[in-house]
Design a protein around this nucleic acid. Structure first.
Lengths: 238, 238
DNA sequence: CAGTGGTCTAGACCACTAC
DNA sequence: TAGTGGTCTAGACCACTGT
């Protein structure tokens, strides 16, 4: 059951994307919209706030609320900072394969222990997978997960989607993540599995992902082919 | 004059960063906090929402509100997706130099015209600058700006901060931006000015920046040395 | 001045959790 | 049942804009 402001937000997003409103004029003012949707002004505001955060609308005090015009587009795989990097759900119309390069359990280094908020005596899964999209190598993911939270990982799970396993089998809910994005030179592992040249760069995403309980469950490095991946982000004034 | 929820948010952020609250227990519940800050529950919620969005807090219905523990740290220059890339304001304690590599006015290509929402007959500034931090080359910025919005750019402005010029001299307010981040091979320009090797990768940020009126005023490509720049982003569930 | 969005309130009811 | 956060309301006042 979606909340009222989410339903309204979805309806308004649809209208904007279908160009039901002219992008040269303000959209209807908040008072009119509260009447149309039979809601309070706070609820209407919350619904529109979501679209402002998504970069679809902007507001100007004393004037009205307007549609943002231009948006950067291109053809590469496109991950925005709103989504959790579950490749499987991101590209559910494409063929995804996972090849397990390494899978073991070890005691965490100081750094890994700090990010996962576990002590040095708690074993962690350590796994490296190559993910292919439509038979083309796409990304190498090196992942650390604490064994006391993510229980029961095995080869079969690794072949498909760990995120599905965490959500459906373990019944946990994934919350947010902190990420760092940088460029790097390719190393031997990259060249071998991503099939890239020695002078091809790599786009690396370092990530700590959290459950909705705030507990970190994953610390990972995703190394992408530079010609197949772009990271997108929207940034709005406050 | 900061709004009440911003003041409360700042105070709570300070307390969290100074570790005034134990990170093992929930912080005080919303009702207690509304009494302490003499505000309504909606206002308290809005204040805490900001900290949740920043990745400092998480909430669990029926339980309480808790402090997020781990955060990725490192030593490189660190731009988050909340900030507009004004290098000058980002690093105001460091020595920043700008060298103008190219500066001209031209009619926009189809792509540039589309992103800046101008027609083919509106001239745009086209400029390329090398930015140095503490005498070390850091980034090459290639920028397009419409001449009908950003009037009066000259060599003197280019030596310092264009963002300051837009804000202070032109009296415009900068709104949000859309960005794409990718890795790339270095080209001749990069190698010459960033002083990098031919096999050094580059982290490129493509950006369309908007005024608070929603009008795009800048389309740019920033090419960073891979060993001096990391892009940070926080992503929270909804 | 009227019309817009920005903030704030006091109170209500709901959903989830623990006891 | 009590305590938590999530949502929603009806109404108020303020700040900014254009006429």
């Amino acid at each position: 059951m979606l909340s009222k402001y989410e339903q309204i937000s979805n309806e308004m997003r649809k209208r904007i994307q279908e160009e039901s409103y002219s992008s040269d004029e303000p959209i209807p003012d908040e008072l009119s919209l509260t009447k149309e949707f039979s809601c309070s002004r706070m609820t209407m505001k919350k619904a529109l706030d979501i679209l402002v955060m998504e970069g679809l609308l902007y507001r100007k005090r004393g004037h009205g609320t307007f549609i943002v015009k231009s948006t950067i587009q291109d053809n590469l795989v496109n991950v925005t900072d709103k989504e959790n990097l579950g490749l499987t759900s991101l590209l559910n119309d494409k063929k995804i394969e996972s090849k397990v390069i390494q899978f073991d359990v070890l005691f965490p280094s100081e750094k890994v222990a700090a990010y996962l908020c576990v002590d040095h005596n708690t074993p962690v899964y350590h796994l490296t997978r190559l993910r292919k999209i439509e038979n083309e190598p796409f990304v190498i993911e090196e992942t650390y997960m604490p064994t006391n939270i993510i229980r029961g990982i095995n080869e079969e799970v690794l072949q498909s989607s760990i995120y599905n396993f965490i959500t459906n089998t373990l019944g946990l809910t994934i919350g947010g993540s902190h990420r760092k994005i940088r460029a790097d030179k390719s190393n031997n592992l990259d060249q071998t599995y991503l099939n890239c040249a020695s002078d091809d760069p790599i786009l690396e995403v370092e990530q700590v992902a959290y459950l909705n309980t705030g507990i970190p469950f994953e610390y990972s490095f995703s190394r992408h082919r530079y010609d197949k991946f772009v990271f997108t982000t929207v940034n709005i004034r406050r």
